[in-house]
Design a protein around this nucleic acid. Sequence first.
DNA 1: ACTCGCTGTAACCTTTTCTGTTACAGGAGG
DNA 2: CCTCCTGTAACAGAAAAGGTTACAGCGAGT
Lengths: 143, 143
Amino acid sequence: MAANSRLTIAVHALAWLALARRQGREQLTSDQVAASVNTNPVIIRRSLGDLRRAGLVSVRHGPGAGWSLARPPEEISLAEVYDAVEGDPVFGMHHTEPNLECPVGKGIRPALGSIYSGAQQALRRELGRTSIADVLRQTLQVS
Amino acid sequence: MAANSRLTIAVHALAWLALARRQGREQLTSDQVAASVNTNPVIIRRSLGDLRRAGLVSVRHGPGAGWSLARPPEEISLAEVYDAVEGDPVFGMHHTEPNLECPVGKGIRPALGSIYSGAQQALRRELGRTSIADVLRQTLQVS
DNA sequence: ACTCGCTGTAACCTTTTCTGTTACAGGAGG
DNA sequence: CCTCCTGTAACAGAAAAGGTTACAGCGAGT
């Protein structure tokens, strides 16, 4: 299980916030979100903290506090969520510097860099075609 | 450094094999490839082993043995290399099963599954636009 | 102004994965 | 048969992620 579940956690939390808002509950605490995702509240706070820094959710303190969407769910794309929670690029370079006396070792990193950048952009473009509202609709269709 | 360098290692090895072939050296040992990538020969054998199982390279045993491309470098796309060496999908699901009594927890996994599948296909499609010959050309342009 | 509930974050543990390394059995030309 | 290199198992070390506990800080309501 090398795979990254950060995007999954964040999208799940946002979809749950979107559904709660539709049901009239404007605020949700990290405990409530964690109960749906079935994980520790700190994991949710870390994830929602990334989303807050990206301007996708807002938070209220004090009693009756909690998290809410900063925008309508139709206007939050998965590409934005991806940017907010995903730090490292999909593909990495060599761990150790390649042999610079070899013509391949010398030039391959910039070459791969532009190729990987294009692939990453294609990934983001595809994610950008889906919004949190789309995810919620598909999620509720299943049941 | 969470990022995966497996694709980088494999593409580096293939580009080096392509250049060697152009220079008249048909076979390269894992030691020779490792010298350019600047890593351990076993890492190279593991990576080239994946590529052999995918039919992208062939190997000869005995003295004077080594690896060679099974096809012209123009006909090896990075999408095939990606499939050969990359096991896990880019995005993973929850580590623990979400709460199935919550409507979001119940339906989000199939919904995300189809979205992730589309994103993954977009990534492969973009990688499919580049061949090993393209990588080699761009690599040699740099120097 | 105080209190209480929840956020925000640091610190730490465990598990997993990856690279790197050593060691050795096996296959195939010469 | 002999030699060279492949193929793979086994293991160590490092890095990262999820999970857990603990606690300081903020702010609305009393």
